[in-house]
Simulated assay, not measured.
Amino acid sequence: MKKMKTRSLALIIASMLGATFLSADAFCAPKASQTESSGLTAVAVIVNGNAITNYDIQRRAAFLRLQRKTGNLAAQAKDELIEDMLKRVEMKKRNMDVSDDEVDKAFAGFAERNHMTVAQLTDMLSKAGVTAEHFKNYIRVQMGWGRLVSARFRAEGGMVSEQEAVQRMLKNGGVKPTANEYELQQVIFVVPNNRRSAILGKRKQDAEMFRSKFSGCSNLKQQATGMIDVTIRNLGRVLEPQLPEEWEKAVKATPAGRMTPPQETPRGVEALAVCNIKKVSDDKVAQLVFTVQDNEKSGDKKAEDLSAKYLKELREKARIENP
């Protein structure tokens, strides 16, 4: 399965927000009167049965102000939130989950790039009327939607054809590209959703302890014997261009016979055991390598076009009601 190189979250948000925020002291969120406050929870629009409130629109409008947007911000905010809801519904339908840990890391990274601490960013968003919660929801949708677009790209056959790959190799003197092939096994410390907040920390400790005692893939199932809610999956052989984006950096940094650091995921806490690494060179590798090279050259445009097409399809099928 091929992975499309799309813009990183940092680039997506940077392009949306510009290099930095406006100063937190440049403006503060207007204080609503008691009458206005009571109307904030009123439903403004319903998208496929999911409500968007006036308060949601107020926060998104504040977010747009923070991006130096002009015009009818309330109308722009409402339209953006309708699109976000369509994306969220599709993410749920496709089981495309983004963990709290991923969102928190992205939030912290954004704060760092804007020369702030997490606390300072949280305070600034609150003063601006956006709130950290709203911004984190925005981040979650951006991350999940990017993965959906990538999956859609793969499903629509965006690979360089075998014939084209052969022609490129001939032009290159018959030299075939090479890539690392990883033999992987997945270790999942399952965390039920209804107990996530209570046991996630303990499961992370269990996963770290498991990793410290890891002695090779041949002993992996035996090591997990007797442990509660621990699942081992054999992922087989995966070429480097096929590595999932969220695991790519960790796998490439892990030598054979070792495990990646555990990561929080929607299923719980996971790590990958790198059983073996070897260099391979064949027609399939050539197709993948050439496809990745093409996407790195024009990936932004392809991602934007496919995202727009995908969203248009969702809008055409959606039930959007204004109460």
Rank of each mutant, 00 (worst) to 15 (best):
E162L: 15
E36D: 14
T131R: 15
P266H: 05
M85N: 05
A74R: 09
T254A: 08
G173F: 07
R233M: 09
R113K: 12
A62F: 03
G174M: 09
N234K: 11
K105L: 12
G129M: 02
Q163H: 14
E156H: 01
E83H: 08
L66M: 06
P177Q: 13
K202Q: 04
K31W: 07
N48Q: 10
A75T: 11
A24R: 15
Y182F: 15
G49I: 07
A74Q: 13
N180F: 09
D229S: 02
F107T: 02
T6S: 12
G201I: 00
R59G: 11
A155R: 04
K176A: 12
R152D: 15
N180G: 09
K136H: 10
L239K: 02
P261V: 00
V238I: 14
R94C: 09
D79Y: 12
L306G: 04
A14M: 10
G109S: 03
A318C: 08
E316N: 13
E36T: 02
R154V: 15
K213I: 06
G268R: 03
E246F: 00
L66C: 09
S23E: 12
G129D: 01
F210V: 05
L73R: 14
Y138C: 15
Q34C: 08
D101K: 01
D97I: 05
F27I: 07
A224D: 10
K176V: 11
P30D: 09
N137S: 13
C28Y: 15
A108H: 00
L22W: 12
L235A: 04
N322Q: 14
M1A: 06
F189C: 03
R68F: 04
I46Y: 03
V141E: 15
A14Y: 04
E181K: 04
N180Y: 11
R59N: 06
E102D: 13
N48W: 13
M96P: 14
K297F: 12
L81I: 12
A303P: 00
N234H: 12
I228T: 14
N219D: 13
G299M: 07
T131E: 13
K105E: 13
T117K: 11
A32F: 10
M1N: 06
Q142V: 07
F153H: 14
K279L: 10
L314F: 10
M85T: 15
G71H: 08
E248Y: 00
I320L: 12
D282I: 13
R113Y: 06
V285T: 01
S307L: 11
K78Q: 09
K78E: 11
Q205E: 10
F63H: 10
D101A: 06
Q205N: 03
R113D: 08
L311F: 05
A318S: 04
D104P: 00
Q185C: 09
E102P: 06
G18H: 07
G216T: 05
E321M: 11
M169C: 11
T178C: 04
N48V: 11
E156R: 07
S150N: 10
L235C: 10
S215A: 11
M259H: 00
T122W: 12
L311T: 11
R233N: 11
F135K: 06
V166D: 09
A62H: 05
Q67I: 04
K105Q: 10
E264C: 00
D123A: 15
M4W: 08
L220F: 08
E246W: 01
P244M: 07
E83G: 13
V149P: 06
A271R: 00
H115D: 03
E208I: 00
K3T: 02
S215D: 12
Y55F: 12
T41E: 15
A10H: 05
R211E: 07
